[in-house]
Design a protein around this nucleic acid. Sequence first.
RNA 1: GCCACCGUAGCUCAGAUGGUAGAGCACCUCACUCGUAAUGAGGAUGUCUGCGGUUCGAUUCCGCACGGUGGCUCCA
Length: 637
Amino acid sequence: MKPSSDQLKNEPATEADTGSLSALEALRNLKLKGLEKVVGVRVNGDILDLSSQVESNSKPEPIYINSEEGLEILRHSTSHVMAMAVKELFPGVRVTIGPAIKDGFYYDFDYKRPFKEEDLPKIEEKMSEIIKADLPFVRKELTSREAIDFFRNEGEDYKVELINDLGAEKVSLYTQGSFTDLCRGPHLPSTGMIKAFHLTKVAGAYWRGDEKRPMLSRIYGVGFADRKALKQHLRKVEEAKKRNHVKLGPQLGLFSTFDEIGAGMIVWHPKGMMLRHILEEFEIREHLKRGYDLVKGPTILKTELWKKSGHFENYRDNMYFTEIDEQSYGIKPMNCLAHMLIYSSTIRSYRDLPKRYFELGTVHRHERSGVLHGLFRVREFTQDDAHIICTPGQLNDEIKGVLDFVRDVMGIFKFDYDLEVSTRPEKSIGSDDDWELATSALLKAMDDNNLPYAINEGDGAFYGPKIDVKLRDALGRTWQCATIQCDFTLPERFDLVYIDTDGKKHRPVMIHRVILGAIERFIGVLIEHYAGAFPTWIAPVQAMILTVTDRNIFYGKKLQKTLVDADIRVKADFRNEKLGLKVREAQLQKVPYMLIVGDKECEKEGITPRQRSGQNLPLMTAEEFIDLISEDCRQRR
RNA sequence: GCCACCGUAGCUCAGAUGGUAGAGCACCUCACUCGUAAUGAGGAUGUCUGCGGUUCGAUUCCGCACGGUGGCUCCA
């Protein structure tokens, strides 16, 4: 199908004799090739429709459909097509908003009943008709008054609300066929340029994200420049499914959940517990190297103390409470309180600072049932939590130290990550000055280190601003794990002091920080990142001894003892089964090394390791194999 | 918490428009002693998530609860 450039030629450009012409004309004048793939233009940094007016001597930059901006235009236009299809199929539906998002788009509707998955094929069909009709997207500017009248007439109250809130004098509307939507644009020249889309799912979503407002029905779709890209995306989604830790975890014998235990509670099986143990041991060593002290607080603390810290006021809904001897206690959702008391248990000198208290602290949070998900969102989890209490002068270095720590650890696991700074939320404690101070301290530490970051306004913790570290896994998806939070308030509330050089009491500042975040979530990310094939240094089972016949068991056991004594995490399969079966099962368990032990190995007192890749290594002695694994561990591979 | 969808053996799934259920793998037993992703034969397996309701009768229909998935809101 040819793009509809001919249609467009006659569009708004015609009246423009006064030194302006359509962007498409301007591009033609530039004699650019591949104009059929151009969906918009960039002029002075603004992205405009192909039909928009530009000055005759301007040189608009073409935006191709497969560029990032081009895809956004495509997806946004596809959402309009979907809205049109839905309006035609479901009379009485009211439209709200429908933006482009990563890989696709969505549109929220208000209808007498929510949409179901089974509605999607019908909608897709209707959309295909609209696309086939190759309807042009026509932009029109109206005053807000006129636009409000228009939408009120159409019964589209959500649009009226949007225009009122915009408070602009003029707004733009886009029309394709029978459908007109309030929209800033830009859009494709016409619907015919949509070549590859797919509606993926339905979901509920609150109007404007506010749970007190109506629940709308959202339809999600994906859209790409061509069918090949769409197919590739669907393959990627399949690949991600295969890595799903909720499935892989139990399959690999790592963890499981039980209805009878409760939602959001993880039960760790032997191999999963071994993985945790390895990570925790690794963490303890890394923390000790960096001047942290190990501490531990109790799980339940008096409610009075939670009132003092501000948690009761600000975090109560997420906490569990209990009663002991007619006293109210709260189960800890965070680890800071005990650390504060450890600090204030004696007089501190400026010479003692900074204090870095580290605890693998298990916390309980009452997360709302709908947010629970595998290991990523649970109600009981363990944080690699530390509180750094230091002088204001040390703050910058300490934040830098934590950022370096994060960089080192993420480097070991080969994770890329982005940094985001979150500022003061509505529900919070502390003075404006302290927030200002804490926020600028975080920003300064990042600026000093030339670290790029994004800002999330109002997304901070209730006691202070934070730097969040978003990991990117092997599939490019992001997860929040590490976080660094600056806090001037708790030291105040707990009256933490140190004696400075002047002999007087001064107030220290505090940093809350986690590196892996929650061990549970981090392991979930690791499972998906490695698709369950953990590198040898963290693999719960590093090697599996596989005997060929019963004759080999005696030697196999001897070998196992040698390796266990050398701290290799080795298991053995001495069953009277065929080697092929044993290899298959070890392979499915993603064990890094299989040690094949047959008559040949018994005779030569050696082993033939088979790597997870399927590659066989030459026959070697147990000592050589121990060296091999030790080297893997040293290299963290 | 809200919206949608889902819940049949350890796992993956089939099934009956309401008459108490099957297949493969796993498991158990026996034989085979075997060299790099499934040896063969035989056997057992379920309160069809739970509780109520409708019905002569429910795993199937309805309601509630519990659990899961995808979103919204929230968040490590």
